[in-house]
């Protein structure tokens, strides 16, 4: 086994860079959510999405968590989750749904380069994510 200082340093470096990346996404997302909450806009948005989120066993505001995870990344989703006070059941449903489908803009590009078209991967991931959401929502939501 080779374990040298440069290897550990490289790992630390990557970790710190990822943390910076986390901070750049999580902090602004959490602030936006808090402002939406304070201004009452979150309740309005939650009201619009409540019927659809109900199928997934989720409260209306969880739609914002799903959107930020699907389109931005998991860090953004976690940022909005930390700013909301979601029950554990909702956190579990969201975590499983987002585990399957997230960071679509970047990851669809990677999948495409790896030989699988967007027209195949997008419906696959989004479909499975929603399927799991409906199933889990039915069980614990």
């Amino acid at each position: 086994m080779t374990l040298t200082l440069p290897i550990v340093k490289k790992g630390l470096n990557k970790g710190l860079l990822t943390t910076l990346e986390l901070a750049k996404v999580i902090v602004p997302t959490a602030m936006v959510i808090k402002v939406l909450e304070a201004s009452g806009a979150l309740d309005v948005l939650a009201g619009w999405f409540a019927p659809f989120m109900g199928w997934l066993g989720l409260p209306g505001e969880a739609a914002l968590v799903l959107f930020s995870g699907y389109f931005i990344n998991l860090y953004a989703a976690i940022g909005s989750m930390t700013a909301m006070d979601l029950p554990m059941e909702a956190m579990i449903i969201l975590a499983v749904m987002l585990g399957i489908c997230h960071t679509l803009i970047i990851e669809l590009a990677v999948s495409k380069k790896a030989g699988c078209p967007v027209s195949y991967i997008l419906p696959l991931r989004l479909g499975l994510s929603l399927f799991v959401g409906v199933v889990l929502g039915g069980i614990i939501g």
């Binding site: 999580i26 902090v27 402002v35 976690i78 940022g79 700013a83």
Partner: peptide, 23 residues
């Protein structure tokens, strides 16, 4: 409040992400 929540989240995740990247 958002800033505090966000930074708390970052701190929680950093403690996982940094050792993970080293491994």
């Amino acid at each position: 409040q958002g800033l505090i929540n966000g930074l708390q989240g970052v701190w929680t995740l950093a403690r996982i992400v940094i050792p993970l990247m080293v491994v």
